[in-house]
Simulated assay, not measured.
Amino acid sequence: DVSVLLAPPRGDAADRAPQTGAPPPQEAPIVAQLRPSGVTIAQAQPRPADQAVTLDLVSYSDEGWLEISGRAEALRRLRIYANAVMIAETWVAADGRWSTRAAAGLAPGDYRLRVDLLGDDGAVRSRVESPFRRESVEAATLAAGQIVVQPGDTLWAIAENRYGEGVRYSVIYQANAARIRDPDLIYPGQIFAVPDPDPSADAQR
């Protein structure tokens, strides 16, 4: 198994990557566990009191299944939608975590991913939404040096995590120029190549 630290989602405003200045403070990272069976949340901060449901992780299985995870009120039922079409239904575990595999047949393209938390009467009590880009099954097979963009990620945050400096987001942008039309706008579910840190650049700092 492999553990990965991921920055937690920061809301819709965080879908846009800042080009200058540091991003605002955020809660502690989420620890994701990468297993052959998929990605699960191994360790995370308690769910924010004002959020009944969160969408924390997006990944792909080797077979191309879309895998999503998050936190919510324990023992509640969830329905997951892509552009208003339900693609999965699951229950929140007793520890407040949830994960599911969505339809493998979801065609590549841009979607609005939505997670609805249902009450005892079946009515929607809370929801969370995020833009999402479904990659093709072929592209969804990660190679060395690639990442899946997560809810709340920005180019700045990815560069800060990888290189220690958010201002080096342009390195990631240039490596993925064919996939990024606007460096201020990236989507969860996209797969990016993240070049190794340049030792010469580190030595000059």
Score class of each variant (00 low, 15 high):
58 V>C: 00
107 A>S: 13
18 P>Y: 02
80 I>A: 12
130 S>A: 09
68 I>K: 05
20 T>M: 10
176 N>F: 06
148 V>W: 08
29 P>T: 03
103 A>D: 14
68 I>A: 08
21 G>V: 04
25 P>E: 01
161 N>K: 14
139 A>N: 15
76 R>G: 04
11 G>K: 10
47 R>E: 10
8 P>H: 02
71 R>W: 04
157 A>N: 11
142 L>M: 09
85 V>R: 15
124 V>Y: 03
31 V>S: 13
150 Q>W: 06
18 P>D: 05
177 A>N: 04
185 L>E: 04
112 R>Q: 13
115 V>S: 04
44 A>E: 07
19 Q>N: 10
111 Y>S: 02
44 A>G: 03
33 Q>D: 11
122 G>R: 05
49 A>V: 11
57 L>M: 07
194 V>K: 07
2 V>K: 12
164 G>Q: 08
85 V>E: 15
44 A>D: 08
99 S>K: 09
188 P>R: 00
117 L>W: 07
137 V>T: 14
66 L>E: 00
28 A>F: 00
156 W>A: 03
35 R>W: 08
36 P>V: 02
124 V>P: 03
70 G>F: 08
127 R>T: 05
70 G>E: 03
122 G>T: 06
14 A>R: 04
68 I>L: 14
95 D>V: 13
164 G>K: 07
89 E>V: 06
201 A>N: 13
112 R>K: 12
109 G>D: 12
205 R>D: 12
43 Q>L: 13
36 P>E: 03
188 P>T: 01
7 A>Y: 10
10 R>P: 07
146 Q>K: 12
157 A>G: 08
152 G>C: 02
141 T>E: 10
11 G>V: 10
107 A>Y: 12
63 E>W: 07
57 L>T: 11
187 Y>E: 04
141 T>S: 12
155 L>S: 05
136 S>F: 02
196 D>T: 10
112 R>I: 09
154 T>V: 01
1 D>F: 10
141 T>R: 15
97 R>N: 10
60 Y>Q: 05
118 L>P: 12
119 G>M: 11
98 W>G: 00
89 E>T: 12
80 I>P: 11
68 I>P: 01
146 Q>S: 08
36 P>Y: 02
176 N>D: 08
18 P>S: 05
62 D>K: 14
185 L>C: 02
119 G>E: 11
149 V>T: 04
156 W>Y: 13
23 P>R: 00
161 N>A: 15
75 L>V: 09
127 R>P: 00
87 I>P: 03
122 G>V: 07
164 G>A: 04
17 A>W: 09
106 L>C: 07
38 G>T: 00
58 V>R: 00
175 A>D: 00
75 L>E: 13
43 Q>K: 13
90 T>V: 08
57 L>K: 02
117 L>H: 09
186 I>N: 00
4 V>D: 06
138 E>T: 05
56 D>T: 08
133 R>V: 01
